[in-house]
Design a protein around this nucleic acid. Structure first.
Lengths: 238, 238
DNA sequence: AGGTAGTGGGCAGCGCGACTATCCAAGGAA
DNA sequence: TTCCTTGGATAGTCGCGCTGCCCACTACCT
């Protein structure tokens, strides 16, 4: 198919596809002449993936490019390439590295040890987690962090087990790598939305059983919506 | 204190504080003369909150403004105001509303029913969830969605229960509202980071027990880092 | 009283990211 | 042949999040 068809199948404007081609997010078509190229189903797939990473996953175009490049080059060692794909998703936050951060960083290490996790010291999620915890501390949520952190960790552990099992069931390394990227990113969004729904339900349930006094109108709830994580969304003309 | 001190305490440049004041993210100081104002500890707190919402939570300045405005006006009905705070976090995605979306939307409703959740029909998280599921479908992950969705939902339910309990323990409505915002947003980031750590651990564990053949180097893993959700982060001069 | 640094207020500008529009020449399809 | 499409490139647009600059004024030091 040619670029116009590609545009029709994916619903994306031709200039945008050209832009992604230029940026290397999508491989070039197979040239049939100096100014003519053929695209395949693969390109349709890829474009959908790009859109998902950017719109739902909230990645920048540059980050998406890096991630996809890693997906495309599965080197020796399944886990190594999968890990690489994952690491590339991180835009490593710049640390403030103050006192609070260092303390949080220590807590993270303890947490990991406490749960018996085998995690490489250089996994950037350690730093990210430390930053989030430090932020919560600065906001005066220290006690609550302590109260729920291990609960969160146990939850994450359960989820991760399921996810990893599912991913290891994929037929080949390529689809594993792709699945890692998709599920890491969209899994965040999925979980976020579910959490908001569950929160509303929980708020409803807990307040109506705890005390049935009328000042609480059963209508509203603690839940919300939307993966706060600011995805870039624009799409003007479509 | 005056604006320079405010800047020193929070580590943010004076022009940025002015900008937030102008945008209404932070209430104006108490004027002592036509060009002089006093700021309080409250302002320090508030600025830290703003920074957390924007940097860690990934909200845009405009979104943060809306959220904070809702936190500031706790109307009658605890749950109502909390719900409002939560709903405002959503930047309701523009739907594509095609066939796949409609199907996913139906799945969401079924899921909610299946788990016995009491969720208002207009909760925007329904639509968000539907969109994520539709995206996963379009990416050919349909089978896997079915395999893990209820697992995710049960997980979210457990988490939500803990969170709501913690929030209801707060002394007053104001701190409840603030906690809702903080924990909804930072909870996403917290969970995302933990999930990545747990994934690396799970990948390590599952591959080394399942099969001990050497082509898998124990070093790398499925885990990654960083809350993919593109937080805006810049901070040039500090 | 005079000088200097700091303040509030406001608007303009900047740098970046992600497109989007336009142009062009070389091919192709009818 | 005639018109259309394509690839390729360059320039323009738009929104966002600051950042700078200017002004009038004030607080405080000397």
């Amino acid at each position: 198919m040619r670029i116009a068809e590609l545009s029709r199948y994916t619903g994306m404007p031709v200039p945008t596809i050209k832009y992604y081609l230029r940026e290397g997010l999508v491989p070039p078509g197979e040239r049939t002449s100096p100014n003519q190229a053929q695209y395949s189903e693969e390109h349709v797939r890829r474009l959908k993936l790009v859109r998902a990473l950017i719109d739902v996953g909230g990645l920048s175009v540059a980050a998406a490019k890096t991630v996809l490049a890693n997906v495309d080059t599965p080197d020796r060692g399944i886990l190594h390439s999968l890990g690489k794909a994952q690491y590339s998703i991180t835009v490593p936050r710049e640390h403030v590295e103050d006192e609070a951060w260092a303390a949080s960083r220590r807590d993270v290490d303890e947490l990991i040890g406490r749960h018996g996790w085998q995690v490489r010291p250089r996994n950037p999620a350690r730093g990210t987690l430390a930053e989030v915890i430090a932020t919560l501390r600065r906001l005066g949520q220290e006690d609550y962090v302590a109260a729920v952190l291990d609960d969160y960790a146990a939850t994450a552990e359960r989820l991760a087990e399921t996810e990893v099992r599912e991913i290891l069931r994929r037929p080949d390394v390529d689809s594993m790598a792709e699945a890692v990227v998709i599920w890491t990113l969209l899994g965040d969004a999925l979980l976020a939305a579910l959490r908001r729904l569950a929160q509303e339900a929980a708020a409803e349930r807990l307040t109506s059983t705890d005390q049935a006094d009328g000042h609480v109108t059963g209508a509203a709830a603690t839940a919300s919506s939307g993966p706060a994580p600011a995805s870039r969304r624009r799409r003007r003309s479509g």
